[in-house]
């Protein structure tokens, strides 16, 4: 069966600097793939390129068999890809409910259908603050809201950019449970991560990116077993 997301030979550049060099990756249906690497290795740029926020300068990106490279972000979102940026970017002046309503899209075949009530069941903290402005929430709550907002679009594939970044360990554990719950709903997930411990607890497969190139692509178990590989690329 063909993968849900299939990236092949992806290049991207900012001005003169080439950030991605021939990235090839795929995410299978119902699979969680962790894209690992240091700050500045190209993780976020890969996510943004898939989402149409950074124009690829070469290569192809297919989603469910359809070419999506070169399309605009809103079209890609409508096809069923949800993007959760690393810096959260909740609409700080909008309430929790309003934040959710911005992300709302019609139900989609082959994807779980989300309503605010279902999301509040998944993120109980949010239920108590429906009318609170996004700006008046803690970092962990904002991270939950960003994910919930994206889920309102009923995506088939979720792009999570460094979901554990800067969160207290307790929240990170809750985040891992959430991701596993989403996987249980049948969602496919591509997440970028520096924290191997966290990635290891949620991902089926891992890929390592360094200086814009893929250096490893295999199962999470294989990465955990290879101390030399981790020492070389993950500086943990």
């Amino acid at each position: 069966m063909e993968p849900l997301l299939d990236i092949s030979g992806l290049d991207a550049r900012y001005g003169q600097a080439q950030i991605l060099r021939g990235i090839s990756l795929s995410v299978g249906r119902g699979e969680v793939l962790a894209l690992m690497g240091r700050n500045g290795a190209g993780k976020s740029t890969t996510m943004k390129a898939v989402m149409g926020l950074v124009p690829p300068s070469g290569g192809t990106i297919r989603f469910d068999g359809r070419r999506i490279d070169g399309r605009e972000a809103f079209e890609i979102a409508r096809l069923g890809i949800g993007y959760v940026p690393e810096d959260r970017r909740v609409f700080s002046e909008l309430t929790v409910m309003e934040n959710l309503s911005v992300g709302q899209r019609p139900p989609r075949q082959g994807a779980p259908h989300w309503t605010p009530e279902r999301l509040f069941a998944l993120f109980p903290n949010l239920a108590a603050m429906r009318d609170r402005p996004g700006g008046a929430m803690s970092g962990g709550e904002q991270q939950m809201l960003t994910i919930a907002r994206t889920l309102m679009g009923n995506p088939r594939l979720l792009l999570l950019d460094e979901p554990s970044e800067g969160l207290a360990p307790v929240i990170v554990q809750a985040m891992a449970r959430t991701i596993l719950a989403l996987k249980g709903e049948g969602l496919s997930i591509l997440l970028s991560e520096q924290n191997l411990h966290f990635a290891g607890s949620v991902a089926d497969r891992a890929a390592i990116i360094e200086k814009g190139e893929i250096r490893f692509d295999g199962t999470m178990a294989a990465l955990k077993a290879d101390a030399a590989l981790r020492a070389q690329y993950l500086s943990v």
Partner: peptide, 14 residues
């Protein structure tokens, strides 16, 4: 270690 460095770093322990 609890709030920042981590108590059980899977990678470091290996």
């Amino acid at each position: 270690r609890a709030v920042y460095l981590g108590t059980d770093d899977g990678a470091e322990g290996a």
